[in-house]
């Protein structure tokens, strides 16, 4: 396993290098000049040229790339054009809201989807099963922003159970933090509940047909134990895989949700950076997301070792 871990961690390096080069190239291909955005509408051409030189954008493409790469090697993501701050510091500031939202979403999703999917598999074809299938089609097809505004309208504006928008950091206390985040987390989790409940249902339903489930019943075990310890435990690998994919996809999802609920996280930072053509921030955030993505995948692969003793690396 040690060898596997070393290999996998080494393998992340080329992935991140390729992502870095692609992002760097792509944002320079997109029309729009950061210097012009910073200079504003009233600026002269000289102003813009001066700002370009200040930002280093007048140098050749390869020189810029080399400079950025040099910074990366010493974990320096550069300076934001717009905020005039270190990108690493910016990401640090915005990390808590995004991680909080992602974490709460995943916890909610797993707590709801796994039991729901398991019960649906157990009563295959029953009312719960059919209701769940219907719900999941709905969950897949409603866009996050529609659902977000709908929930805000009902639960924040009409019923006044939750605040409309904003974020309270964890240091203000657990309840204020949770109270602020619950609505966005629910919004974001609907589609993942649909996805993970379906996968759980399929996976558990398959496990329920296995011989060892028959053995468990022949032992006179209570149905709950047959379902959890024998069926669900054996169905775990595909479920965890999809949860892993869900976490990765969520990173894309927070961009929209944070905008809808005005949460000052990485999602809003990305949107602001794109609008301001803030190249270093865009590069840094995307590289950071790619890094998270690779780490989540590694953790999922490692979790297999605990879920299935037959898997050895």
């Amino acid at each position: 396993m040690g060898a596997f871990l070393v290999k996998r961690i080494l393998a992340t390096i080329p992935v991140l290098v390729i992502v870095a080069i692609i992002v760097f190239t792509l944002i320079r291909l997109v029309p729009g000049d950061p210097a012009a955005v910073i200079a504003g509408n009233m600026a002269t051409n000289e102003d813009i040229a001066r700002i370009r030189t200040e930002l280093g954008l007048d140098r050749g493409f390869l020189t810029q790339l080399a400079l950025w790469a040099k910074g990366l090697a010493s974990s320096d993501l550069g300076q934001s054009f717009f905020f005039k701050k270190e990108v690493t510091a910016l990401i640090g500031e915005r990390l808590e809201p995004t991680l909080s939202l992602a974490f709460l979403t995943i916890v909610l999703t797993v707590l709801v989807a796994v039991p729901l999917g398991t019960l649906a598999a157990w009563r295959h074809g029953g009312w719960l099963d059919r209701a769940l299938m219907g719900f999941s089609v709905l969950g897949f097809s409603i866009p996050v922003f529609v659902l977000g505004y709908l929930l805000v309208y009902v639960f924040a504006l009409k019923l006044d159970w939750f605040p409309v928008q904003g974020y309270r950091p964890l240091r203000d206390g657990l309840w204020p933090w949770l109270h602020q985040l619950l609505l966005p987390a629910i919004t974001l989790s609907i589609v993942y509940v649909a996805l993970i409940a379906r996968v759980t249902r399929a996976s558990v339903a398959e496990a329920l047909t296995e011989d060892y489930v028959r053995t468990a019943r022949a032992k006179g075990l209570p149905e709950a134990r047959v379902l959890v310890r024998h069926a669900l435990a054996n169905a775990a690998v595909p479920i965890v895989t999809v949860i892993g994919i869900g976490i990765a996809l969520l990173i894309g999802g927070v961009v929209v949700t944070e905008s809808v609920y005005s949460i000052p996280g990485l999602g809003t930072l990305t949107v602001d950076a794109v609008l301001a053509r803030d190249f270093p921030v865009i590069q840094g955030v995307i590289l950071f997301f790619a890094f998270l993505y690779v780490m989540v995948n590694l953790l999922v692969d490692l979790s297999y070792l605990f879920l299935d003793p037959r898997i050895r690396y």
């Binding site: 011989d211 060892y212 028959r214 053995t215 468990a216 006179g220 435990a233 003793p309």
Partner: peptide
């Protein structure tokens, strides 16, 4: 499991692998 017990055909699949 207590009064009536059963052994199955496939020992490869009749035990819980995890």
């Amino acid at each position: 499991g207590d009064e009536i017990a059963m052994i199955f055909q496939e020992p490869m699949t009749a035990l819980n692998p995890v």
